[in-house]
Design a protein around this nucleic acid. Structure first.
Lengths: 218, 218
DNA sequence: ACCTGAACACCGTTCAAGT
DNA sequence: ACCTGAACACCGTTCAAGT
């Protein structure tokens, strides 16, 4: 049942998920899913947890704590992008399921074993977690569909800029204009890892400073 | 009109925003808002841009690029938390308005002036941007309402853990259990800055390494 | 425990019509 | 240009009823 709902979301987006459509997909009546689920929120929570079960938590052999976190959140990112729109289920009211709990606990254990304090572990986890989720939230910078057609030549950057960022005249947003090819590009895979490595580098600096402070005290 | 819609969202949440409720708020017919807006998506985009206009882009006197970025994204964070739920407007289809463009351009200009490459500037911007948005996406770790009442004594951590993370038995999530007081705590203000400083520290390390490499080549 | 059909209280949006 | 009222095609969910 949840699998069928996830299939619907993967194919037509999260907004297209409807008890009625799900029912016809299953060949039942619109009310049949209520036998398995209390309401739509619970269905969404179950779908999210099903997806979170795909995260690879097996640590790469012999790697350090930063490498293990990188591997885990890279997998997390890949799983979320494989199910577009599912990240939007994270809202105020999410109920975390068993797979989500296992993933959280794994990340916390890596940070604790690395020697981070309790507060530091939690803060570091949320930094990685929030970044990963936020990355899925916005897709490519979408065009502002204001009638300007996309039939111009591919190389005409100014045409693209005008279509994508038409809310202000170009001379008010010179940096956006200058960087437009990078802003609209599809280099999402590397982009995620750039930010992930920034956070991990920050954590490693904190970790090193703390070890140094401990050594100086002895 | 957009202001009235924003007031509705601030008071009752983004899901409660309805053309019909907005109309009664304005004392008009349910169809009246359509005179100002093409559809609901456009209304949401206008509301988001109205909020983004509150971001403080005035750089603190005499601070470096990292300090200026910290100030801007701290303000961005405060603005988003002041309007709960508004961050959920960021979806695949957001049309960025003038205030949003100004904020983006400001962040890009700071990074460019600091000496980051074009690709580095864009990647750094998205790291900060995605983290900030992701932070608003999930609120506190919400209780899993499975009938367990919250009437236990405040000090009984195990009770809290069982209520919040009941999807798995405690011995399968030892780190969550051990860190539960930190996970469920309301220390959101400092938590945002922890992650923000991690990203900025990572950027500063990259910046320093690049300057060093340039010097060595001469 | 699982499924059905009809109904209720809502939505966003279209349309024809008014000023 | 702005507003109205009725209508359409949808929602999630409740309820009474069936197996």
């Amino acid at each position: 049942m949840v699998e069928a709902a996830l299939r619907l979301v993967d194919q037509h987006g999260v907004d297209a998920l409807t008890f009625r459509k799900l029912a016809t997909e299953l060949g039942t009546s619109p009310m049949a899913p209520y036998s398995y689920v209390r309401n739509k929120e619970e269905l969404l929570d179950l779908m999210l947890d099903l997806v979170l079960g795909e995260i690879d938590l097996s640590a790469p052999r012999g790697s350090d704590w930063a490498g293990r976190l990188r591997a885990m959140f890279r997998s997390y990112h890949l799983v979320l992008t494989a199910h577009p729109g599912i990240a939007s289920v994270y809202r105020e009211r999410v109920k975390i399921g068993p797979n989500g709990l296992r993933a959280i606990d794994h990340a916390l254990s890596v940070l604790r074993e690395a020697g981070f304090t309790r507060a530091g572990t939690v803060n570091a986890f949320f930094a990685l977690f929030n970044y990963t989720i936020g990355f899925e939230q916005i897709g490519e910078v979408d065009p502002a569909d204001d009638g300007l057609a996309h039939d111009g030549e591919q190389g005409d950057v100014h045409q693209i800029v005008r279509a994508f960022f038409s809310a202000l005249p170009p001379d008010e947003i010179p940096n956006i204009v200058a960087l437009a090819p990078y802003l609209t590009g599809p280099k999402r895979g590397r982009r995620f890892e750039y930010g992930l490595d920034l956070i991990l580098a920050g954590l490693q600096a904190k970790h090193a400073a703390r070890a140094k402070g401990r050594a100086a005290r002895h």
